[in-house]
Amino acid sequence: MLYLILAIVLSAILTFYRVIKGPSVPDRIAAMNSIGVMFLLVLVLLSYYFERKIFIDVALIYGVFLFINVLVMSKYFSEPEKGGVGD
């Protein structure tokens, strides 16, 4: 079970490359969304590794906050500045 968790964490670290070197803002938001879902799955698998079922409740609330996070970020950046940020 531990190696499966380490594989998911490795793929999350590989996705973090797109957050650093994204040419535009929506690239970074999409990459952040996928990192969030990957760590939600890590939380569900950790509840079987430590045998504590409370982590699944934490995963439910984490999913709600991830959705609100994406909505607020795409609402906040949706008006481009005067300097011409596009592309």
Partner: peptide
């Protein structure tokens, strides 16, 4: 929850990028 939520989030990002002139 994940199926309903994540498709809405992806559509919001795509529509935002369309308004952003990409």
């Amino acid at each position: 929850f994940l199926v309903i939520t994540n498709s809405i989030a992806i559509h919001v990002i795509a529509s935002f990028a369309d308004n952003y002139n990409i």
